[in-house]
Write a protein that binds this DNA or RNA. Structure first.
Length: 145
RNA sequence: CCAGAGGUUCAGGCGGCCGCGGGGGGAAACUCUCGAGGAAAGUCCGGGCUCCACGGAUUGACGGUGGCGGGUAACGCCCGCCGGGGGUGACCCCAGGGACAGUGCAACAGAAAAGACACCGCCGCCCGGGCCGAUCCCUUCUGGGAGAGGCUGGCGGCAAGGUCGAAAUGGUGCGGCAAGAGCGCACCGCGCUGCUGGCAACAGUGGCGGCAUUGCAAACCCCACCGGGAGCAAGACCGAAUAGGCGCGCGGUGCUGCUGGCAACAGCGGCAGGCCUGAUCCGGCCGACGCGCGCGGGUUGGUUGCUUGAGGUGCGCGGCAACGCGCAUCCCAGAUGAAUGGUCGCCCAGGGGGUGAAGGCCCCCGGACAGAACCCGGCUUACAGGACCUCUGGCAUG
């Protein structure tokens, strides 16, 4: 919340707003900011996006007009019990935290749907899968648009 | 030392680096701090809390509980005790009220399964019938007759023994008898009853009775006691459009009788309908439709409820115990597409392999069940591997 937003202005200029306006990709920002998808309608909307299957997950990418890059995770009961589902979601989150700033499609929604073998796959492999899937999505959409 | 019984407890540890959620500080950069479980699980009981419903009496239905006493906010939980069963023992198991209120069921096997029976068997009598038949008599022969005895049979008595079964109409012993039998007696068991002990369940004991009284109530049932419904997606607040809606006041419903009126209709009386409970009674309330006044908003999102509580820990006191009381001290997750993760190193347990006489050394694998969702008290189920305490039986030593 209210991340970064370095204000070039003088610190003395007390400006009470700040929270309202969205920072539009400051030029000095090294990587894109990733926010989280939580609303059900956004998940449903992403169903029509580009679909990239991988070993431990399925990636859905859907460009939006919001101007921000977002990620969401879907872990159904097919994955296992509550412990297995938590673990799958956390590992996916960690992998995307590392991989997305460098490889995500800017301004698009990314949905990761966990598969059953998610929890067993070594983390290094999972991370590589995420990078490859994101790169593939970038190529597809780049060609498309 | 071996085998076993009961209980308590842990749930890998430490440290880098990069992250996540809550709270505090700060103008900011940032920083400090807290962050899953014993079952968080199943949602099977009991509560708190919230909203809804709720006039009284009687009765019924449905669900639950079931030895006694205690603990508790409460319980179907816990503790202690009683009774029954199992074990050498420590200990363990038991829905453990009622089967002379009624109905029902008791498969198979077996002679017989509920007020019953006689298959084998035991005993007595009958010798009448059938079969076999040593031997003897008659007859030329065929054949006929007598006939001890055996087998089979008939009538009656019996239920001890055998057989079947989950269960067989009390058990053991002695007497008794043709053989037997509670037929008689003693003890045990059972029923009724008195006394003593105990708050009680119940125990002990005296008298009487005779074998009466099969089992199943986790079959219906009977008895006693208990029980409103829904759940934090409860509920509250904030903000926007349309429609339905809701409350109050006034007039006011249907059928029918009489009276008045040409009629519309009016007056008086009786009956009816719906709701308040499944039923009955008492009691209460409502009204088709019209007019007037007032209120308010399904859903989605946000905020709240939301974590300080029948709370944890320590000490003391009371109690056999469950537990209670007092004092001190601590604050210990609050997410909501849902935080507690990723990775690396060392150590600790575990498994496998290699080497060695062995202590050991090296390598590989690798960490049970499982994730808070309003909060407590229980129950049940899942669980790698440990640690500790108490007790029992046996062996050895002293």
């Amino acid at each position: 919340m209210a991340s970064g937003h370095p204000k070039p202005g003088s610190p003395g200029a007390e400006e009470r707003a700040g929270a309202g306006e969205k920072p539009l990709a400051a030029p000095e920002q090294p990587a894109m900011a990733i926010s989280r998808i939580t609303a059900r309608r956004d998940f449903l909307a992403a169903n029509s996006g580009t679909r990239i299957p991988s070993t431990a997950f399925i990636l859905l990418v859907k460009p939006t007009t919001l101007g921000e890059t977002r990620a969401g995770f879907t872990v159904s009961k097919k994955v296992g019990n509550a412990v297995a589902r938590n673990r799958a979601r956390r590992r996916l989150r960690e992998a995307t935290r590392i991989a997305m700033p460098e490889a995500a499609v800017e301004g698009a929604d990314h949905i990761f749907i966990a598969r059953r073998m998610d929890a067993e796959r070594p983390f290094a492999d999972l991370l590589r899968d995420a990078r490859q899937a994101l790169a593939k999505a970038g190529r597809k959409l780049g060609v498309g648009s």
